[in-house]
């Protein structure tokens, strides 16, 4: 997690956000008591990739490979978190 400028506890937010929905991620963020910069980085990462199981199923209904979309979203959220860690000081 140090590449995203976040404490180790924040991985809990990412896992809940990826597997469940953003409301559960919001609950975990409030419970951890992070500062504004960490919340902004986490919010961007969770907003880009959330509810991966449900939304992967929707994508497969349209006709796009759900595994490609899921992998692409997780990768993009990592890229966004890394970039924001570099940009925000």
């Amino acid at each position: 997690m140090k590449y995203f400028g976040l404490p180790g506890d924040a991985s809990l937010v990412l896992i809940t956000g990826y597997l469940l929905n953003i409301y559960s991620a919001v609950g975990v963020i409030i419970g951890l008591g992070l500062n504004s910069r960490e919340i902004t980085i986490l919010a961007t990462m969770v907003l880009i990739a959330h509810s991966l199981i449900l939304e992967g199923a929707i994508c497969s209904r349209i006709g796009v490979n759900p595994f490609f979309i899921t992998f692409f979203r997780i990768l993009t959220s990592f890229i966004a978190g890394f970039l924001l860690n570099v940009v925000l000081r």
């Binding site: 953003i22 919001v26 504004s36 919340i39 902004t40 919010a43 969770v46 907003l47």
Partner: peptide
């Protein structure tokens, strides 16, 4: 939702 909890 995320602005409500303090994101930019």
């Amino acid at each position: 939702i995320f602005v409500a909890i303090g994101a930019n």
